[in-house]
Design a protein around this nucleic acid. Structure first.
Length: 208
DNA sequence: CCCGTGATTTAT
DNA sequence: TAAATCACGGGG
């Protein structure tokens, strides 16, 4: 039985890298839906123009970003999609990690039902709104405590972060409005993994 | 490329 | 009250 991931009192870059390779689990109707985290983005709080908490902005929508590390921040966007973040750091820092893609591992038949447009297994959780649809994560889970909740949590499959050579860092997706902040390498993914969003080729495999 | 879709935020 | 925005996805 895998242990629950509990190290959320971290800065978002450290947490982002450490979440790669861990397992996101959703239990709904007694069924387990799960996948390995393969792509994430760090959002650095008030100073980060791309973050919902930029400039200390605090509204009803982003309130859970200001909770202490270990809570979920789930928001609704573009009239139809949900995205899930893992809040980290201390209360009121409003820093978080967006989960962008999973490699599905449990409950794939149910995910297929919830994601009729996905043509391959690798597409089921390939994108931040795809994975929430596949797992049934919506606004009802905004503010969930991932350290204690019975319906949504992260399991620790490995103690340490993946070796640096297996992680690729790139600019974040969909934040072009954020000026210089849109270029910073704050998106992290597992090199060569077929379930990461965007273009299929993510850079070459490291040679010795 | 283009657009659906609607809550949320910002401007008046 | 109205307009603009939006951490997206699917289809050409």
């Amino acid at each position: 039985m895998a242990e629950r991931f509990a190290d959320f009192a971290l800065d978002p870059i450290t947490l982002a890298r450490r979440l790669l390779g861990q397992r996101l689990v959703r239990v709904q109707g007694g069924r387990r839906l799960a996948g390995r985290i393969v792509e994430v983005e760090a959002y650095l709080g008030a100073r980060d123009r791309a973050a919902h908490s930029y400039g200390g902005r605090r509204t009803q929508r982003n309130a859970s970003m200001y909770l202490e590390g270990g809570h979920a921040y789930v928001y609704f966007v573009y009239g139809m999609h949900y995205c899930m973040n893992v809040v980290c750091g201390r209360a009121d820092e409003a820093v978080a990690v967006l989960i962008r893609a999973l490699e599905p591992s449990e409950g794939l038949d149910e995910m297929v039902r919830r994601r009729p447009a996905a043509r391959r297994e690798t597409d089921l959780c390939r994108g931040p709104a795809c994975l929430t649809a596949a797992l049934g994560v919506d606004r009802a889970l905004d503010g969930t405590d991932l350290r204690r909740d019975r319906g949504l949590w992260i399991e620790r499959l490995r103690k340490r972060a993946l070796p640096a050579r297996e992680i690729v860092a790139t600019p974040r997706i969909g934040v072009d409005y954020a000026a210089t902040w849109s270029h910073k390498p704050l998106r992290f993914l597992i090199r060569g993994n077929p379930c990461v969003s965007g273009k299929r080729v993510q850079g070459r495999v490291a040679r010795s």
